[in-house]
């Protein structure tokens, strides 16, 4: 067999995405981003820089935000992958999606799915921590830090941060102590 054909031989792999198992013949050279978009038709995850610099491709791997452009799909066998398509529960939007829509926190929307995945993980983790530490609340600084790997070219970030704060407030994870627009 020619060397490149031998090396790019596909291997049957099972990937669990948003709770559903997909059996796919994967070439080792495919990134998770490519497989999600091109093979599984999950085009909500966006394809930006493919260098780890923009965060548009962020997904959750075992609930932890990672960059799907810097992950091989074959590495993900046996792990739970959550993409933007997995946030809503049937027709019921995730509270973050509702807040983003209410506040107009997306413009072109290219960064939005990565940001929503990162924000979901931040809120879930804080909610988990609140169980053992009832005083646990998120701060704006923490939200900004969590989003520091997600570049948005349109919104100027303020509405995004406000939408996450609003969601956190509704989940009892954030206490607003200053007027919303103060640090614009």
């Amino acid at each position: 067999m020619p060397i490149n054909a031998e090396r790019s031989r596909k291997k049957l792999t099972s990937l669990k995405v948003n709770g559903r198992v997909y059996e796919k013949a994967l070439s080792p050279i495919s990134t998770l981003l490519e497989i999600l978009r091109e093979d599984l038709g999950l085009t909500g995850t966006k394809h930006g820089c493919e260098l780890g610099e923009c965060g548009a491709c962020a997904v959750l791997l075992n609930d932890v935000p990672v960059l799907s452009c810097l992950t091989l799909a074959v590495e993900c066998e046996g792990k739970e992958i959550t993409t933007i398509e997995g946030l809503a529960d049937g027709n019921r939007l995730h509270p973050l999606q509702t807040a983003f829509a209410e506040l107009g926190a997306a413009q072109c929307g290219y960064c939005t799915s990565g940001i929503l995945c990162v924000a979901k993980s931040l809120l879930d983790k804080a909610a988990q921590e609140k169980k053992s530490n009832p005083g646990r609340e998120l701060s704006r600084a923490e939200i900004k830090e969590a989003l520091s790997g997600n570049i948005c070219r349109c919104t100027g970030y303020l509405k995004i941060i406000e939408a996450i704060e609003l969601t956190a407030e509704r989940l009892n994870l954030f206490h607003r102590c200053e007027p919303v627009r103060e640090d614009r």
Binding site: G52, G55, A58, V64, P65, V66, L67, L70, T71, V118, E145, A146, S148, G149, N150
Partner: peptide, 9 residues
């Protein structure tokens, strides 16, 4: 260094 997502990986 880097970003939270990168540091997670």
């Amino acid at each position: 260094g880097a970003s939270p997502q990168i540091r997670n990986q």
